[in-house]
Design a protein around this nucleic acid. Structure first.
Length: 488
RNA sequence: AUGGGUGUAGCUUAGCGGCCAGAGCGCGUGUUUUGGGAACACGUAGGCGUCCGUUCGAAUCGGACCACUCAUACCA
């Protein structure tokens, strides 16, 4: 049994915190609400980055970098945007410190007050659109497809490692297009990229949908989302892609001359995923023994443990296996620590979520075998050393698929159709997950249901069937079901 | 931000006005071990979140602040 991890059914939040800390992913820092991402956690982020970055580039995007600080006046140029973010902005007001005249330490030098305060970016639409004004003159300059990997800051009241921190790492794409249709296509294509990445790499099933007006990004016409379901039955917004219409182009006066020599405002999209994905990854797969990582994102895919300790005979076999695995591009480590016993190492690597463990002991070697343990099911089996690299390569694939299938089954079992508020409440309380229900389309009803149940509309699924029905709260006519859930 | 809880070595914690702040884990060295978190010995490490106050005397009492945590609210 794993030491020191709180069981999930005992206290899910505590379990989550235990995993993050014990698996060495992240910790709180000296700065309120800001985390230190430790090497084990950052390596996962790097793997996510490289996969996503590859897909962005394949679809014509390029990376750039814009300033961390945004002039205060920029924020207020788009009315809804400022309203959405104003309450959570960190503000830079001075540019110099001085020795405290009354004692030790330093104080802000009052003479170094900035003429215009600077905002630490909560998102970069404003500074980027202000820049795009200079970059875009003609339809020949479009589309402009730019992404940046960076940190942003939102002064959140309550923070949780990875899920909601004041500072977080993300990528934000900001694109400019000549037509509304093209910008919308971009928005949906990015949603597809996010969904495909979530499912194929994170093994995390997601539902693609559109946000209601109430849940929309501040300043967007439409917000496309991917929604995942966590083990405790709560939903997680895993990525969003916004169709911004001409809102920012108008706010920052970004125009282009079209082929008919007519001046037009450009059309925009913006989209992002963040380190929150790591939180989603944890809450999709991990168990009471620790982290469980999908092989495609695991910083280390295979660990070899000598049983009971390193030994020339065992080392030789390990070296061979490592060479064969590396040739296949599989990451592997041989644990040569002589002081720690095998049982300790087993538990340790399970805690860290290494997908496959190879145990090499003399008893098995005599039979030409090694022990293979898979993290997802915790099954162990003896396998012949001959052809072991092929076996492991296949096993990693099986684990990846199994994790996805397991999560998919779990999620699908927790999408429940409900047609009355009584069912709505009881299913939400007893089972959790997504509730598929009719809704009359008004923000008023949405808010009322939230008040009554704490559940929000996670999305209007893109694949929803047209179905005549009545709003679960008001009984007014509805054309399709939407998905409700309690959310992170 | 509101309401509840917590803050003593790296971690978990005992002590709850005076008596050297004590232990387990960890960490280091050594010995014996080693097929699912080894045992023993010796050693290492804290002035009790911060500040102010009460007191002859504060980790213990009071206040303010800070941080973390749970619930509510907001978000990627």
């Amino acid at each position: 049994m794993a030491k020191e991890i709180t069981a999930r059914d005992e206290d899910y939040s505590q379990w989550y915190n235990d995993i993050v800390k014990k698996a060495g992913l992240a910790s709180n820092s000296a700065v309120r609400g800001c985390m230190v991402i430790k090497p084990n956690g950052f390596a996962i982020w790097e793997n996510m980055q490289s996969q996503l970055d590859k897909r962005f580039k394949e679809t014509g995007h390029v990376n750039a970098s814009f300033p961390l600080l945004i002039p205060k006046s920029f924020l207020s140029k788009e009315a809804e945007h400022v309203e959405g973010f104003a309450k959570e902005c960190a503000v830079v007001t001075h540019h110099r410190l001085m020795n405290d005249p009354n004692g030790t330490g330093v104080v802000v030098d009052p003479s170094a007050k900035l003429e215009e305060e600077l905002i630490i970016r909560p998102t970069s639409e404003t500074i980027i659109w202000n820049t795009y004004r200079d970059w875009i003159n003609s339809y020949r300059d479009l589309p402009l497809l730019i992404n940046q990997w960076c940190n942003v800051m939102r002064w959140e009241m309550r923070t949780r490692l990875f899920l909601r921190t004041s500072e977080f790492l993300w990528q934000e794409g900001h694109t400019a297009h000549a037509s509304s249709q093209e910008a919308e296509e971009e928005t949906r294509m990015i949603q597809d990229i996010y969904a495909e990445f979530a499912e194929e790499y994170m093994a995390m099933p997601v539902i693609k949908g559109v946000k209601t007006a109430n849940e929309r990004f501040a300043g967007a016409i439409d917000t496309y989302t991917i929604e995942a379901l966590m083990q405790d039955g709560k939903a997680l917004q895993a990525g969003t892609s916004h169709f911004l219409g001409q809102n920012f182009a108008k706010a920052f006066d970004v125009k282009f001359l079209d082929e008919n020599q007519k001046s037009q405002h450009v059309w925009a999209s913006s989209w992002g995923v963040s380190t929150r994905l790591i939180g989603g990854l944890i809450m999709t797969h991990s168990d009471d023994d620790g982290l469980v990582l999908p092989p495609k994102l695991a910083p280390l895919q295979v660990v070899i443990v000598p049983i009971p300790k390193p030994d020339p005979v065992i080392d030789e076999v390990a070296e061979k296996i490592m060479a064969a695995l590396k040739e296949k591009g599989i990451s592997v480590k041989y644990d040569m620590d002589k002081k720690k016993r095998p049982g300790f190492k087993f538990a340790e690597y399970e805690m860290r979520g290494i997908p496959v463990r190879v145990g090499i002991g003399k008893r098995d070697l005599e039979k030409g075998q090694v022990e293979i343990a898979r993290r997802d099911t915790k099954e162990k089996s003896a396998q012949p050393v001959d052809g072991i690299a092929d076996y492991i390569e296949q096993l990693l694939e099986d684990i990846q698929n199994n994790l996805f299938q397991r999560a998919l089954d779990f999620r699908n079992e927790r999408i429940t159709k409900v047609d009355s508020m009584e069912d709505f409440k009881s299913v939400l309380e007893e089972k959790g997950g997504f509730l598929s229900a009719h809704w009359d389309g008004t923000t008023e009803t949405e808010k009322k249901i939230k008040e009554l149940t704490k559940a929000t509309i996670r999305c209007i699924p893109l694949d929803a069937e047209v179905e005549e029905g009545q709003c679960v709260l008001t009984g007014k006519p509805s054309q399709q079901r939407v998905l409700f859930a309690k959310a992170y």
